[in-house]
């Protein structure tokens, strides 16, 4: 990624987080990855104390989002991100175990950019994440609106 894009990884399962990070690194992506293991911390970081997300004005963010979080659903975070004027341009990759077609449809309707189901088969999983890393390395991420 040309600009210093920060990858926000919201994933409650630390094992998954570790595997995702490892495989992204293996694909040659060296951007900063900020892991969050629950929705509340992630929301606090993303939207700041006043909920306006003003802190991220001008920053380039890419959000990796799990839908099944202990304290809230990823869908709520997705909705808020896409409704926020600073964050709505940030690409959101939903990476979750759910492969329910209703859920997938709903996420795209809310503005998610990519939806990936975590395969249990590790080769597939690793492959998917590496390809995602390759994808990250070529996509252009805009800065948050100024």
């Amino acid at each position: 990624m040309s600009k210093p894009v920060t990858i926000i990884m919201i994933e409650d399962d630390e094992g998954h987080a570790r595997l995702i990070e490892r495989n992204i690194r293996r694909s040659g992506v060296n951007n900063e990855i900020m892991p969050f293991t629950n929705g509340t911390d992630a929301v606090n970081y993303l939207f700041g104390s006043d909920g306006s997300a003003l802190d991220h004005k001008g920053h380039a963010l890419l959000i990796l989002l799990d839908l099944n979080l202990p304290d809230m659903t990823g869908i709520d975070i997705l909705r808020r991100v896409k409704e926020n004027k600073y964050l709505k341009c940030a690409p959101v990759v939903v990476l979750t175990t759910t492969d329910d077609s209703q859920e997938i449809k709903r996420c795209y309707e809310l503005g998610c950019n990519v939806y990936i189901t975590k395969p249990v088969n590790y080769d597939s999983f690793a492959n998917a994440i590496r390809q995602l890393g390759l994808f990250f390395s070529v996509i252009q991420v805009p800065s948050a609106a100024t």
Binding site: D13, G15, N68, T97, V120, N121, Y122
Partner: peptide, 17 residues
């Protein structure tokens, strides 16, 4: 069944590791 999948991903992943 959904929640059983999550730990399974880890087991599988780290077994591969």
């Amino acid at each position: 069944s959904h929640d059983l999948r999550s730990p399974l991903v880890n087991i599988m992943g780290f077994t591969s590791e």
